[in-house]
Amino acid sequence: MSATQSAAPAALDRDQLLDMYRRMVEIRQFEDAAGKNFAAGMIPGFVHLYAGEEAVAVGVCSHLTDRDYITSTHRGHGHCIAKGVDIPGMVAELMGKSTGVCKGKGGSMHIADLHKGMLGANGIVGGGFPLACGAALTAKTLGTGGVAVCFFGDGASNQGTFHEGLNLAAIWKLPVVFVCENNGYAEATPVHYHCSATDIANRAGAYEIPGVVVDGLDLFAVYEAAGEAIERARRGEGPTLLEAKTYRYYGHFQGDQVTYRTEEELARFRDRDAIQAVRDFITERSLATADELNAIDQDVTAELDAAWDDAKAAPFPAPEETLTDVYVAY
């Protein structure tokens, strides 16, 4: 244990900050548009929206490059964007179009881009743990210096794969960081109802790895903690369990009536909005004006509008392509 080593940067320069702000805005606007267009019947299947949780994906993935891997969840759009997956390709993928990043065959819940180290959203709750361990074992075996980050929710922490994954990562000292996005609800079930102990991070002790709770609404808190955990993994010191306390603005899925939480609770979290906090941070320090940040917002809106227009015009995969670009050949 080299607890005194600390390689994560203590500061961010203006360009880095504005880039992180932009990523968060991209996620928020992507999700708002996805919700609207799902309601309009433009997206087949289901969508689970990440709005409200942006600080987690961006705070973590800002430390990663294409050599690093992430595994995601059913709520995976934010992870994709934070990991650098092409946004127009994501829009087309949601619509099932052939111009999508998976040629329209993955959709929202199986969206992946292996070139970006994004190993896929995942409809199986808790499906990411073994994948992340495998990816981390690859990085360790090949000596690439890469790490794997496994995003998962509070509900997934009750799956067997959580315990199998943490144990395997601990005994093999795999370069993996388990990031629990504890948004308070597993679908409609509150965490205090489905978890015997509501701090998921405390489960790290059972595997003799560090477990840390961090404010998931605070980009800088996530950034610092994730940086330390990722650098620790890169140094070969093994896995960390990082629990980000966060909140989702939308329901579990679009169409969810959200009868299990109050408007007051939602309002309380919206008052602490992670993107607004970053805006305030930037403007209070005169790193950029509100107008400059608004220009970023508008630029993202224009890009997304164009992406949706392009996706609408794009073709669906042809029937003869049904069995191409899928994992299983029949």
Binding site: A201, G205, A225
Partner: peptide, 19 residues
């Protein structure tokens, strides 16, 4: 309920006190 869980379990060897 929040004491004993922060980043000092990662950057230092702070003890973990669960609830």
């Amino acid at each position: 309920p929040a004491s004993g869980k922060d980043i000092r379990r990662l950057i230092a060897l702070g003890s973990s006190i669960d609830n």
